[in-house]
Amino acid sequence: MKNFIKEFTKGIIRENPTFVLVLGLCPTLAVSVSVVNGIGMGIAATFVLLGSSLIVSLVRDFIPDKIRIPCYIVIIATFVTIAELCMKAYSPVLDRALGIYVPLIVVNCIVLGRAEAFACKNNFRSSFCDGLGMGVGFTLALILISAIREFLGSGRILGHTLIKGFEPVFVFGMPSGALLVIGLLLGFFNLLKNRKT
């Protein structure tokens, strides 16, 4: 049990996919304009991660080494398409906001990376915890980045104005602002890590 908790929590801080592994930055940069987008993207990616990690670990003895990558991609693409269809059916507004970045989860390095680095070597219970931890870590990172960007870029969080009279800095709503925020956060997390050691 302790082992599973460890697998779960490592994705949130020690091996956070965005700030420590630095994977899947493209969708992170693109969708982190508002907190709602960040949460939606995080949930979709978590669902895909969970599903693909679980299935990959279950069929890992059955898939020959030489064709493992195409097999993983088919499994991941299936989950992504299911997530996309569900999103279209139940939350068309979110679907439009995230646009092309939902289908692009297929090539998100976090998902394929976890299948390749973890799920194909571990049993399904550890893989499940690992996928869940990574997904939650990714979601939290997205929420952090998008909260900073939404607040600085449009003066609001989740659509609510926090400080009256705050003049928004437009650049944070644009791609350059995304790079700035992520760069500074990465530096900050590295500083914390170096302090500890």
Binding site: V59, F62, I63, I67, V74, I75, T78, I82
Partner: peptide, 14 residues
């Protein structure tokens, strides 16, 4: 055969 099998299952699910 293995790849085809996986694809068939995926197609059914989709």
């Amino acid at each position: 055969f293995i790849l085809a099998l996986i694809c068939t299952i995926a197609a059914g699910l989709l």
